[in-house]
Design a protein around this nucleic acid. Structure first.
Lengths: 335, 335
DNA sequence: GCCGTCACTGTTAGCGTTAACAACATTGGT
DNA sequence: ACCAATGTTGTTAACGCTAACAGTGACGGC
C-alpha cells in the first residue's frame, strides 16, 4: 500500500517545466502560456496526479475543510442541515468534517472544536441549539472563523437561525384564524433555543389576540414524549387546538388522540414544526411549519467564507423565515 | 486573522528542549524522562499549543481522517450510520469527513472519492447501496483502504452489510406465523441492494412455506410511494398481510389503509423495516425490523483500520443480523 | 579505568506545496 | 538600437512536523 502517488515535481518533469509552473496551472494563475498549460494538464492526467492537500494546507496555513460540530445528526433537522451544509461547501471547494458530540456540554464541544482546530480547518460551524453550548464558544480562540447555527441570540457570535418565533407565531395564528379560542403548546426541551423561540412565538400570537396562554406541556422532541402529553390533552374536552414544537411530537400527540377517540381535525386541530418528509402521510396529513435548511446552510457558509476571506470577525446575524405548510390536520373547532 | 498559533519549536524553546523531544512527548514515545515530559506538557498548556495535523499528515503520508461517501444523509438509515461511524472513529482518534453525493452514479462517486483522496484521508467508507456505485469503485486506486457498506455483495471489495435477507425473512415469517396465508411486499427502488435483499428474503420465506409469492409492489422508500401502493392494497380484500421495505413506506401504507377503512391489525397486518424512532408511535405502533447501525459502523471501521494498519487489502466481508421488534401492527388474519 | 549498553536528547533532512523573488523573452515606444 | 513594461518561467526558501541518525551521560562488567 501507500505507494505514494506522483508529486508535483513528477508532473513537472514529464511536462518539461518547473514544479512551480505546475502549481500555477493548478491554481489558475493568469500568466501561463496556453501551450504550457495544456502540456501540464496532459502530464497531470497521464500520471493521475492529485495535489496533496496536506502540503498545501501546511504552506498556506489553512485547509479547504470546514468543521461542523453538531449533536444528534440523527434527528431530521440537524441531518438536513448537515447535508445542506455539505452540498453548499462542496460547491465552494470545501470538504466538511463532522464532529458530532454526544452531549452539548462545553467539555464535549470544546473537545470537538479542538479536534477540528488541530486539523487546521478553515472555519467552524457549530450547530449549538443549547444553552450550555454558548459558554464553550466564549472561551474559544478568537482567530478562527466561526458561525453558530440555532445558537444563543444573546451572544456576540455570528449566528444564523431559523426564525423560530415567526414560525411559531404563524402556526398559532393559523389555528386562531381557523376559529379556535386558544391554542395549547407541546414544547421541546427548555434548554434548546429552538424550543424557547417556538414557545415565545406561540405566546406572542396568543397575547396579541388577547388570549391568556394555557399551561405549557413540556416534551423532549420525541414521539414518545408527544404521546405522553397527548394522553393528557386528549382527556381535556376544552382542548381543540394544539401546536407542537416538532413533527415527531405531533405524531405522538396524534396517536394519543386517536386512542382516546378524539378525531383530528374534527375534534382537535394539530400543527407541527419541521415538515419532515413523512409528515404529509401522518393520519391525518400534518399541517406544519417548514424551515428552509438550504437557506440556513447557504447563509452560514456565506458568513463563514466572508470571515475566512476578509479575516474580520464581525458579529453578523442572519435569520431565515420558515413557511407554513397547510395540510389536513387543522379545521374549525367543533360546533 | 490567522495569527498562526505557536509551533512545536515555540513549545520546545519554552520547555528548554528540542522540538523533537516535544514531538516525542506528543506521540507517546517511551524514552523521555518523566520530568522532561512534564515540562513539555506544561509548556504546551501554557502556550495553548495544538499540533498541526497538516504537517503531520504531510510527513507521515496520511492524515487521521476517514472519508465517508454517502448519498442521502437525510434518510434515517444513512444518517444513523454516519453518526455511528463518526462516534466510533472519534474514539479511535479519527475525524470523519463527509462527501455526500446527490446521485450515486459513478461520476459523482468518483468525484467525491477524488476530493477525499486529495485530502489524503487514511481510508474511505462508501455507503453505496446502489448498483451503479459499484462500477465507480472498481476503477478506484487500489492503494487506499476502502470499505463499502450495504454495497454489492458480488464485488471483491471489503463489505459490511446488514443482513437484509435474514431481516426480511424474519418479518415475513412473523406474519406467516400469525396465521396469514400469504404476505405482500412493498419494496424499495430495485437498484438498491437493500431492496433486492429484502425482496429475496421475503420471497425465500414464502417459498420455504410452499407459498407462491404475490406480485411485488414497487416503492421508492418514501411515504408517498407507500401511500400509493397502499391505495391499491386497500382495495384488494384478499390482502391480509403486508411487509414493507422500510418504515416510511409502512407509514404511507398505514394511512392508505386507514382512509379505506381497513383496520390495522384487525383487517390487515403490517411490518416495516428500520425501526425509526417514531415507529412506535405510528397508528398503530409498527412491528418492524431493527438493523444495528452501531454494529455496522464498528465493523466497518474495524475493517478499515485493519487495512490502514496492516497495509493489506483483503476482501473481507461482514454481516450484521437485524432483530425483529414486535409491536401492535400484526395480528392473525380476520376469521 | 576502559568500553559496551542503555536511557535520553539533539541535529539534520526531508515530506509536497506555495510565495517571493530573480531571470529571461518579447513587445512596443522612442 | 535602446529601455521600460510586460508576460512567462525558474529558483529558493519556508510551512511544522517525523524519522533517522548522532550525540551525551550514567552505569556496570571486566
Amino acid at each position: 500500500m501507500a505507494v505514494h502517488g506522483p508529486a508535483m515535481t513528477d508532473v513537472a518533469r514529464l511536462a518539461g517545466v518547473s514544479h512551480q509552473t505546475v502549481s500555477r496551472v493548478l491554481n489558475g494563475h493568469p500568466n501561463v502560456r496556453e501551450q504550457t498549460r495544456l502540456r501540464v494538464r496532459a502530464a497531470i492526467a497521464e500520471l493521475g496526479y492529485r495535489p496533496n492537500g496536506a502540503a498545501r494546507a501546511l504552506v498556506t496555513g489553512r485547509s479547504q475543510v470546514i468543521g461542523v460540530v453538531a449533536q444528534n445528526t440523527t434527528l431530521y433537522g440537524p441531518a438536513s442541515l448537515l447535508a445542506a451544509l455539505e452540498q453548499t461547501a462542496a460547491a465552494e471547494g470545501f470538504a466538511v468534517s463532522v464532529g458530532s458530540v454526544r452531549d452539548l456540554d462545553h467539555r464535549s464541544i470544546s473537545a470537538a472544536v479542538e479536534r477540528h482546530l488541530s486539523h487546521r480547518v478553515a472555519g467552524i460551524v457549530v450547530i449549538a441549539p443549547v444553552e450550555s453550548a454558548g459558554e464553550a464558544l466564549e472561551r474559544l480562540p478568537k482567530d478562527v472563523p466561526l458561525v453558530t447555527v440555532d445558537g444563543d441570540p444573546s451572544r456576540p457570535v455570528p449566528l444564523v437561525t431559523v426564525d423560530q418565533v415567526a414560525g411559531a407565531r404563524a402556526a398559532t395564528q393559523h389555528l386562531l384564524d381557523a376559529g379556535h379560542r386558544t391554542v395549547w403548546h407541546v414544547s421541546g426541551p427548555s434548554d434548546w433555543f429552538d424550543s424557547v423561540g417556538r414557545i415565545d412565538g406561540w405566546r406572542e400570537a396568543l397575547v396579541a389576540a388577547g388570549i391568556d396562554p394555557p399551561p405549557l406541556m413540556h416534551g423532549d422532541w420525541s414521539a414518545a414524549s408527544g404521546y405522553r402529553c397527548g394522553q393528557m390533552l386528549a382527556r381535556m374536552p376544552e382542548v381543540t387546538a394544539v401546536f407542537t414544537a416538532n413533527d415527531h411530537l405531533a405524531l405522538g400527540v396524534l396517536r394519543a388522540l386517536h386512542e382516546f377517540g378524539r378525531r383530528v381535525p374534527a375534534d382537535i386541530s394539530v400543527v407541527g414544526f419541521d415538515d419532515v418528509p413523512e409528515a404529509a402521510y401522518f393520519i391525518p396529513p400534518l399541517t406544519t411549519v417548514r424551515p428552509d435548511f438550504d437557506a440556513v446552510a447557504r447563509a452560514s457558509l456565506q458568513l463563514l467564507l466572508t470571515q475566512i476571506e476578509s479575516g474580520t470577525g464581525g458579529a453578523l446575524r442572519q435569520t431565515v423565515a420558515p413557511t407554513l405548510v397547510a395540510r389536513d390536520s387543522v379545521a374549525p373547532p367543533p360546533n
